[in-house]
Nucleic acid binder design. Sequence first.
DNA 1: TAGTGGTCTAGACCACACG
DNA 2: GTGTGGTCTAGACCACTAC
Lengths: 251, 251
Amino acid sequence: MELQDLMVRQDFNQKKMPLYLVISEALREKIIGGEYAPGEQLPSEYDLGEIFKVSRTTVRKAISNLVNQGLVISQHGKGVFVKKHHKTTFSLTNPLTFFEVDLARQGLTGKASTIGIERIEASTEICSRLNLAAKSQVYQQQQIISVDESPIALDTAYFPLEIGAVLAEQLQTGFTYATLERCGFTLKRAEIVLECTRADPQLSKYLEVSIGAPLLVYHYVAYTKDKRVVACGETLSNADRMCYSVVLDRD
Amino acid sequence: MELQDLMVRQDFNQKKMPLYLVISEALREKIIGGEYAPGEQLPSEYDLGEIFKVSRTTVRKAISNLVNQGLVISQHGKGVFVKKHHKTTFSLTNPLTFFEVDLARQGLTGKASTIGIERIEASTEICSRLNLAAKSQVYQQQQIISVDESPIALDTAYFPLEIGAVLAEQLQTGFTYATLERCGFTLKRAEIVLECTRADPQLSKYLEVSIGAPLLVYHYVAYTKDKRVVACGETLSNADRMCYSVVLDRD
DNA sequence: TAGTGGTCTAGACCACACG
DNA sequence: GTGTGGTCTAGACCACTAC
């Protein structure tokens, strides 16, 4: 019955679509169309195999496709469930805002937990971004940023020694920009690059996503009003849960 | 020999890593470390199976992992090759710049080919973004943006009727922002949201990426100085080939 | 024609979740 | 224990590329 429709579509498109694609597309439409509601469980791999008359391997390939598209999540021992997405927005609009402020505006609560802060010899790239001589020592801080108790981003920040030394204790808690300001480093400018990357096995653990899942990367260099670099770093966030907004005005 | 090292690492990590992960991590390190150079071909699936003493299915799972991480590209009938990444940067910095300008600065050449422009009834969301009454008619334009002869983004733009009518012919060629300006619609403000999504089968064809590949989404609403909305739309770009930059200054 | 990746099967065994 | 997804095998056949 369902299978009929699928075969028809396959002929209609004049293409030999592989079976797994026919199946993942069929499921995709049901998900997009709301026939499978967010949070709902799909039939088991075995049942899908029976329904579509294919092997379990093929069903798994189809499901893997849906997982890659961010439509479903597969839970070992439980089943495959339609994802509920809720994206958090981080505003890049002037004046420089803070993540807590953005979160509060969206009725969310965030937390930054420091997983490490240490003095290291900076890489060539970091030295250049911080405008320091090669092989300078810097403070490196890593934080997991959680929203509503689930990890959304991993922030790695680098500070010149004289700044990091002052902040080392305070940086253990709270968000980086906010801590800097509280300690008298008023931010005047931030240079930002946004790009996308994919989770390697280590990041996939920190952010609780699958290997290869897309991550948004927020590269930053922050300056005080005397044009001194106070920090640089990267925030890697779960691309399914974060977006950035900007408003550009021209004089 | 190699296998030995891998097994040792597996024990060392105190984790039962699945074979495909051990293999994809081994290959990943060689790629990152430059042992496999960009553009170089990996051993065939059959050979990798012999090398690691596993079935071809397992080798394929490992390679699929690398593809998902954007490290390699698999070419039917030819082989698996290490990717060469070259990202194009699009600046969001004030004043509003144009993609051509950015490209030229990077020594690249871009082209926008219109694949369709038609008058349609706008969705509720588009009407709201264009500040029009529900079910208004609008012009919808779709363009493939290519850099150095390969597709990098799909832009879908919506224009109110009175603007679209003026532009319909000219919009057939050239970049949207530039065409608007040339026709006397000076842009004063753009509201932008950046997020990440994944390629569905249709987008995967247009942008020549695999299904589920990450795409950067640039949502925009553009205003003239009399606060009139002249256009809105989305630019979906290959996340492996595009990034966005912003500079924020605070008064 | 030979070599490569792409699809698919049938079946085995393991690990996790839940009652 | 039962059911679920996770890993892995061995082998078949197809489609694309290159010579």
